[in-house]
Nucleic acid binder design. Structure first.
Ligand SMILES: [Zn+2]
Ligand SMILES: [Zn+2]
Ligand SMILES: [Zn+2]
Ligand SMILES: [Zn+2]
Lengths: 133, 133
DNA sequence: ACAGCTATGTTATATTATAACATTCCGAAA
DNA sequence: TTTCGGAATGTTATAATATAACATAGCTGT
């Protein structure tokens, strides 16, 4: 892992929500990172290697939260609109059904995206406990 | 449906692939549409009403290809990187598994995205029939 | 006529991503 | 050791996507 990749990866591991490339850029200015391309290049490598996932729904990036999700299962992200956290899951059954749907249609899969947007359990209970008046 | 919405919707229905907001803007200049916001506003309404879907993976928009997909099933899009076409499907089994995964976790679902990127059957056979040397 | 609402239009700006080109670094081959 | 070549890095500029802020027009019910 190169130096810039390490900086970006560490930052994403420490973050509790997806960060945009420009969030990362701002956070790493003092590490000598000054231009968007430096961030995008590091992200491209990290994503390619499965250490980081791109979250399409929010144009953001998160460090992989699972061991070896680089297998052939798709990751499922639940994205809370309130706390902005992203939780990563895998589900063999969903993945195999998607795969067989693709196979049935002769579609050659390169990449799958499953993202669910909504409110996480924590945020629901938090709001129930302290409702706004 | 307002005039701008009609223009945008018709264009998307005629298109054979997802269009970006700026594709739409360029195509509708002669209809009097001059600014991105006019397009984005029409798209927001159309998406809200389920007539149009946003494709996160390509920052594009397509007219709904199914009758009444506005039920509670999620749409599954297969996106061909070669011909750029988007095919829309529903699958009750995949949807219900996603839903029960969310329920188990206490996650309150607002929106689901399932997008599969790859090569469609047509493009595979086309390339097989006429390979590049 | 008036108030309130929706749609529309316009300009400017924010956010996300890539192109094009120059430079540096480092290991392998000569 | 020198030199070659690839990988990484840095820099500037620009493309592509999306929204903010404000002004205007039209329509509806009172
Ligand atoms: Zn992962
Ligand atoms: Zn939350
Ligand atoms: Zn649909
Ligand atoms: Zn195709």
């Amino acid at each position: 892992m190169t130096q810039n990749e390490t900086f970006v990866y560490q930052l994403l591991c420490d973050a509790d929500r997806p960060l945009s490339a420009y969030n990362i850029l701002d956070a790493l200015r003092d590490k000598g990172i000054r231009a968007p391309l430096q961030v995008y290049r590091a992200l491209a490598k990290l994503v390619e290697r499965g250490a980081v996932h791109r979250i399409e729904s929010v144009n953001g990036f998160v460090a992989c939260q699972l061991h070896d999700c680089g297998g052939n299962e798709v990751s499922i992200f639940m994205l809370c609109t309130q706390c902005e956290r992203a939780h990563e899951f895998t589900n063999i059954s969903i993945d195999s059904r998607l795969q067989s749907l693709s196979n049935d249609l002769g579609f050659q899969v390169a990449h799958k995206v499953i993202e669910i947007t909504g409110r996480c359990a924590d945020c629901q209970t938090a709001q129930t406990a302290a409702p706004k008046h």
